[in-house]
Structure formats: C-alpha cells, structure tokens
C-alpha cells in the first residue's frame, strides 16, 4: 500500500498554534521537551501563554491544575513515560480527582521510541491513565486524526490523555473524516476475524489484512482511537460476526487495548481472542520498525497471530 507519511507531533504543534490564534484561554505547558513534543511551535507564537517549566513534570502537572482551576484550557506535554509515570500522583490527585480542564498530550508512547531504549519506551501509560476515574484516553491513528482529536479535546472540559508516538505515521484517514469520541472506525470489513488495533499499529493491521486476503482469510480492521470509554458496540458486533478478535497495540499486553477489549468480550459476548503487543517485557534499543518486528508487532507478527487464532477457533 502506498501511503503518505506525516509526523503526528508536528500536526499537534500546528493545531495548538491554530487554537492559540482562535482562543485566548488556551495555555500550554512543557517540561524541557518542547522541541520534541512540538509545543515549542506554540511557545514561539504565544510566549506569554507558554510555560516551559524545565525538568519538573510533577510541578508541571500541579501548575496545569492551578491554571485550569482559574479558567484556562490547558495542554500539558512531555514524553509518555514522564507525563504519566513520573507525574502519576500529581495527575491523579491534582487533575483527575478535581476533574480539571487539563489535556495531557504525551508524545513518544510505546516501544517505537526506538534507540533511546526501555527507559524511554512507555508501555504502561494507557493502563495507568485508563485506571483513573474521570480520565478519558485517546490514541490518534495518524496526523489527520491528531488534528481532529486535539480540536475535540480543546472543545471539551478535560481531563483527557492523548497518546502520540514518535515516528511519522502513514496517513490512513482523510482530512474530511470525522472523529467521533468513543466510536471506533471500521477501516476494512471482513468475515473470518477482526483485528482491533490502535495508533501506530493500525497501518500494520491493514498490511496484514491485505496479505491475509491473498491467502484466503477475510480480516476486518478496526481503528480503536478512543480507548476509554471503549466502543463496546463494535467489539460485540465483530465478535458475533467473525467469532475471533486479535488486538494490536504498541503497549504492554497487560492493561492496554487488549485488556479493555477482553473485558468487553467477557462481559457481553465471550469469544476467542489473542493479544499482540509487548509481551510483559521492557523493550530495548533499536530502530523502531526493527523493534516492532523483533517483538512480533509488525504485519508479519499480526498475520501469525491471526493464523493461530484461526486454528483455535476451529
């Protein structure tokens, strides 16, 4: 498949700038990673409304809470590992519990951080954020969806956790598509199995489905951008239709997309499923695409999982 690629981080930075021009109440915080998270683009145009607090993720989340409590619409950014791990208690106590209007937009989620290695590859963040009452969790699939999601969260009362990844992503949705919060997007229909993927993994799921089609297996591909609240309807519908679900995520197989889907299936329509993701192991250094292959999270890994599922389904 021929796709154009675009950086989700750059789309985030551009959208922040556009929002900053439209609305005075938008303020942005960062913790010394603004050139990576691209919040620096906002800071350049709106220096008075941009607070780069230095290496203080915990303090940043507390300040974000105070600004939100004073009527601001706040975006706070860092790498996923620091935004959700380092500052977890501040996010819990000062943002989620008082239900303040803070949008935590973290970049560098997952093992696809690459060469920096396990210390920077956050594979627990979706679990951490989904476990917080009042927190809603979105993983946009491409730069087009990033723009829609950032505009959506800016229009709502927070808190939200939006997870972005480092590499440029293929544009698999069009700029005209709509983002419906809490609703998944069917990317490709199929009869034999449904692959439910999120973020960077959706394009790999599409590649896998294309190859499976050539081998006579009809796989549906679902883009699950909203992880919390999850789209129960589509999960049940495709479990009923195909009888088998494979989930794919750049996250630990515990506490992420796979776990959320499993919860829905067990409660509403028990069906066979397999989870593709980090196998409860810390990552290691390497090129991001090499790492996806190494951990069985690329199209080849997904195909293997689908075939395994087809075997147990029989």
């Amino acid at each position: 498949m021929k796709w154009k690629y675009e950086s989700p981080r750059k789309a985030y930075g551009e959208t922040l700038v556009a929002l900053g021009r439209e609305r005075e109440d938008i303020v942005v915080l960062d913790a010394d990673l603004s050139t990576s998270t691209k919040t620096a683009m906002f800071g350049k145009e709106f220096p008075d409304r941009f607070f780069n607090v230095g290496l203080q993720e915990q303090n940043m989340m507390g300040i974000a809470a105070g600004l939100a409590r004073s009527g601001k619409t706040v975006f706070a950014s860092s790498f996923a590992v620091f935004a959700t791990g380092r500052a977890y208690d501040q996010v819990r106590q000062s943002i989620a519990y008082p239900k303040l209007n803070v949008n935590i937009v973290a970049t560098h989620g997952g093992v696809t951080v690459g060469e920096d290695g396990a210390s920077h590859q956050m594979i627990e963040d979706i679990g951490l954020m989904c476990g917080l009452p009042n927190m809603r969790v979105i993983v946009p699939v491409d730069a087009n969806e990033v723009r829609r999601v950032i505009r959506f969260v800016a229009s709502q009362n927070g808190p939200f956790y939006v997870r972005l990844t480092r590499p440029a992503l293929p544009l698999i949705t069009s700029p005209e598509d709509e983002f419906v919060f809490g609703k998944a997007m069917l990317m490709r229909d199929g009869e034999d199995v449904a692959i439910i993927a999120t973020g960077i993994e959706v394009s790999y799921a599409l590649l896998a489905a294309e190859q499976l089609h050539k081998e006579g297996i009809s796989a549906a591909v679902i883009n699950m951008s909203t992880i919390k609240p999850i789209d129960k309807e589509i999960i049940v519908k495709y479990a009923r239709k195909t009888g088998g679900i494979v989930t794919v995520e750049d996250h630990n197989i515990y506490n992420g997309l796979g776990s959320r889907v499993a919860e829905v299936l067990v409660e509403h329509y028990p069906a066979r499923m397999l989870r593709v993701g980090m196998p409860d192991k810390f990552g290691r250094s390497g090129r991001w695409d090499e790492l996806l292959a190494y951990y069985g999270m690329d199209d080849a890994g997904i195909i293997k999982a689908v075939k395994k599922l087809m075997e147990v389904k029989k």
Binding site: N59, G62, I63, A65, G66, R69, S70, D89, Q93, P98
Partner: peptide, 23 residues
C-alpha cells in the same frame, strides 16, 4: 484545590498566580 497527597499544593497555587498575571 483538592489536596491531601503532600507536596502538590504549591504547584497548583503557582498555576493560579500565573493565571492572575495572564488575566
């Protein structure tokens, strides 16, 4: 402000003080 987990209140107060300056 919600408080109870120690060490966080001064950060929230900074956010409020910054908002006062901005506004």
């Amino acid at each position: 402000m919600c408080t109870g987990s120690l060490g966080q209140g001064l950060s929230a107060a900074i956010g409020m003080a910054l908002a006062a300056k901005l506004d």
